[in-house]
C-alpha cells in the first residue's frame, strides 16, 4: 500500500491503517528499536507502541515521509524505554554515546525538553550544511546507531576511512555548537 493510501486510512480513522503500517514498516521499526534496545521482546513492544503513537498523532499530523516519521517515533520510544527501565544504553548505542562525549561531555547537566529541541534544530542545521556523504554517514551512526563497519560497507568505504570521516564530522559539530552558543569554548 502506498503511503498516501495509508495516511488516508488514518484520516478516515480506519483501523486497518494500523495493520497496514505494521505490514509495511513493522520490520523496519523493529530494526530501529532493536539497535538501541538489543532485546527482541522490548523491540517488538516498541513497534506496537510506535503504531499506537502514530494512530494517535495522525491526524492532525500528516507526515510526508511516513517511513522516516515512524523511525523517529520508534527511536524516541526506544530511548524512553531505556530511560524508564534505568538501563544503561548498551552495545553500539553506548559506543555512539561515548563518541558524542567528544562533542558534549557526559559530566554536564542534562538539558530540559525545550533545550533538547533547540539542540535538535541546531544539529539539523549543521547536517544540512554538510556534504551529502558526510551527512548520511553521521545520520547512520547517530540516528540509527549503526556499527561503523556496516556504514563503511553501505557506502563502499573501508572501516578506517568511515571512522576518520565520523571523527572529523564530530569535530566540526563541536565547533558549530560552540559558534551557536550551545557550548562554552
Amino acid at each position: 500500500m502506498k503511503d498516501t493510501e495509508l495516511i488516508e486510512l488514518y484520516f478516515n480513522r480506519d483501523e486497518r491503517a494500523i495493520e497496514a503500517t505494521k505490514e509495511s514498516y513493522g520490520a523496519y521499526c523493529f530494526k530501529v528499536a532493536f539497535a538501541l534496545l538489543e532485546d527482541r521482546l522490548d523491540a517488538e513492544e516498541c513497534v506496537l507502541d510506535t503504531l499506537s503513537r502514530a494512530w494517535n498523532a495522525i491526524p492532525p499530523e500528516k507526515p510526508i515521509r511516513l517511513r522516516a516519521y515512524l523511525a523517529k517515533i520508534t527511536r524516541r520510544l526506544a530511548l524512553e524505554r531505556l530511560e524508564r527501565a534505568g538501563r544503561q544504553k548498551r552495545g553500539e548505542a553506548q559506543t555512539v554515546l561515548d563518541e558524542l562525549a567528544e562533542v558534549l561531555p557526559s559530566s554536564a547537566d542534562t538539558a530540559g525538553e525545550a533545550e533538547t529541541r533547540e539542540l535538535g534544530r541546531a544539529v539539523n542545521g549543521f547536517i544540512r550544511g554538510l556534504p551529502e556523504r558526510e551527512a548520511n554517514i553521521l545520520i547512520r551512526r547517530c540516528f540509527y546507531s549503526e556499527p561503523v563497519k556496516q556504514i563503511a560497507r553501505s557506502y563502499g568505504l573501508n572501516e578506517k576511512h568511515a571512522a576518520v570521516i565520523l571523527g572529523r564530522t564530530r569535530k566540526k559539530l563541536r565547533a558549530y555548537l560552540i559558534k551557536e552558543g550551545f557550548i562554552d569554548e
Binding site: R65, A111, I139, I183
Partner: peptide, 26 residues
C-alpha cells in the same frame, strides 16, 4: 547539556535527511 541530550537531539532531524541517508545506503 550533555552527550545524552545530543544523542536524543538526533531524533529531531528532518525526515527528508533520514530518508536520504537510507536511499544512499541502499
Amino acid at each position: 547539556m550533555n552527550n545524552k541530550d545530543l544523542f536524543s537531539s538526533f531524533g529531531e532531524i528532518d525526515e527528508s535527511l533520514v530518508e536520504r541517508s537510507e536511499r544512499a545506503a541502499s
